[in-house]
């Protein structure tokens, strides 16, 4: 996720204020935070409560409801493997098992050195050409063990 920066309270506050000023709802502000930093830090909760006049429970409830609004920083690289039916039909389960074995990660985990996060995704709309994945924000299709290994080697080299 090369275009993201480390969490910065002041920048984050600016993102929230801008979102609110544009008329974006809380979900829109959370989207803007994730786009900027890759996740929503706990430090954002108090200013979000204030900006959006919501209780702590409401803010936390919204953050935790949506898969996209991660609550901790993802790895430097993020691979999202499609787990949905059209990809299952062409071997997504086997491909996922292969990647998990190769990286030592289960879906939803990050390597200890913070280099790689593996996540499930439920459909990227590339269903005629599965198995599909999203690798650092770039779509990948028609994957097999060989091609995903090459992509893994490319991003972690």
């Amino acid at each position: 996720m090369t275009n993201m920066t480390h969490w910065d309270d002041n920048k984050a506050k600016a993102v929230m204020t801008n979102s609110h000023a544009r008329g974006a709802p809380l979900t829109g502000a959370l989207r803007a935070l994730v786009d900027a930093f890759g996740y929503v830090d706990d430090a954002a909760i108090a200013p979000l409560m204030q900006t959006y006049a919501r209780s702590r429970a409401e803010v936390l409830g919204v953050i935790s409801y949506y898969d996209d609004f991660r609550q901790s920083s993802p790895g430097r690289h993020v691979i999202r493997l499609c787990q949905a039916e059209a990809c299952q039909a062409v071997g997504a389960r086997e491909l996922t098992a292969h990647v998990c074995k190769k990286t030592g990660l289960a879906l939803g985990e990050t390597t200890g050195d913070g280099q790689l996060t593996l996540e499930p995704v439920y459909c990227l709309g590339l269903c005629a050409n599965g198995p599909a994945a999203d690798i650092n924000g770039k779509p990948a299709a028609h994957l097999d063990e060989k091609s995903i290994d090459a992509k893994l080697a490319e991003i972690t080299k």
Binding site: T27, D67, D68
Partner: peptide, 24 residues
Amino acid sequence: FVGGGSYVCGEETALLESLEGKRG
């Protein structure tokens, strides 16, 4: 408006909740 990765937000009323800034 970009959603938050929730399948059920494709259901119209959950979608509206999400658009209003709430849990879907």
